[in-house]
């Protein structure tokens, strides 16, 4: 089946793409929404413009739609992007990296239902520790691009997700209930390499903004 992936460039949408490909689905395009609202409820925002380089590295066409990011109104822009993908790439289904968020998932399900296409959520309800371990096992090269909860600080920005990360995030989970895979919006990530990439991406510049326990980075890739 021809599918499009709702792609943020983070670990979950990349891993969902990997699982779809592994199961034999034909990923015809990546669909990304660039929100002007950094606090969007619906879309991942830190370093979102990196999706262009990631799509190049995967050699998969990208459908990019901008939104001003007003709550609920941004869904029209998402629907517009999916319609574009259906028209241009004849996709019959959407793949998402949704794990826990019923807010995001139910809205995407409603759009797909309206447009008459399948909605696939291969990470749905997945144990978060298991998810992180599988990413490492499958050689996903991931860095943190945003942190949004106590006790994170700026030192976590651009930190690699590896075995040390798992140990530390496990302790934060015990002490502060930080979700191990960031499903509560505690952090956002960016994939620099994975089995779907034809070449590895490199961070060549970044700009960090924020204060206290909330920082985000805008990364430049090569």
């Amino acid at each position: 089946m021809k599918v499009g992936v709702l792609f943020s460039g983070g670990k979950d949408s990349c891993y969902a793409s990997f699982l779809a490909k592994k199961a034999g689905y034909d990923i015809c395009c990546l669909i990304s929404i660039v929100s002007e609202n950094p606090d969007s409820f619906m879309f991942h925002t830190p370093s979102i413009t990196c999706v262009e380089k990631q799509a190049e590295a995967m050699d998969i066409p990208l459908v990019l739609v901008k939104t001003i990011g007003k709550r609920e109104e941004e869904l029209y822009d998402l629907e517009k992007a999916i319609k574009l993908a259906i028209k241009k790439y004849k996709i019959k289904g959407i793949v998402t990296g949704a794990v826990e968020s019923v807010y995001q998932s139910s809205r995407i399900q409603k759009i797909c239902n309206k447009l008459g296409i399948e909605c696939f959520n291969p990470l749905w309800q997945k144990n978060q520790e298991q998810l992180i371990k599988e990413l490492i096992k499958n050689r996903f090269d991931i860095v943190i691009t945003g942190v949004f909860a106590y006790p994170f600080d700026v030192s976590w920005i651009l930190r690699k997700i590896d075995k040390n990360f798992i140990n530390e995030i496990g302790k934060l989970n015990e002490q502060y209930k930080i979700a191990v895979a960031g499903e509560g919006g505690e952090f956002e990530s960016l994939v620099l390499n994975c089995p779907l990439f034809k070449r590895k991406l490199k961070v060549v510049g970044f700009k960090i903004s924020g204060s206290g326990n909330a920082f985000r980075s805008e990364v430049r890739l090569k």
């Binding site: 089946m1 779809a20 199961a23 689905y25 399948e118 696939f120 959520n121 990470l123 309800q125 997945k126």
Partner: peptide
């Protein structure tokens, strides 16, 4: 669909 297994059976 094979991919739906992960969403409806695996959990």
């Amino acid at each position: 669909e094979k991919l739906h297994y992960l969403e409806f059976v695996k959990p």
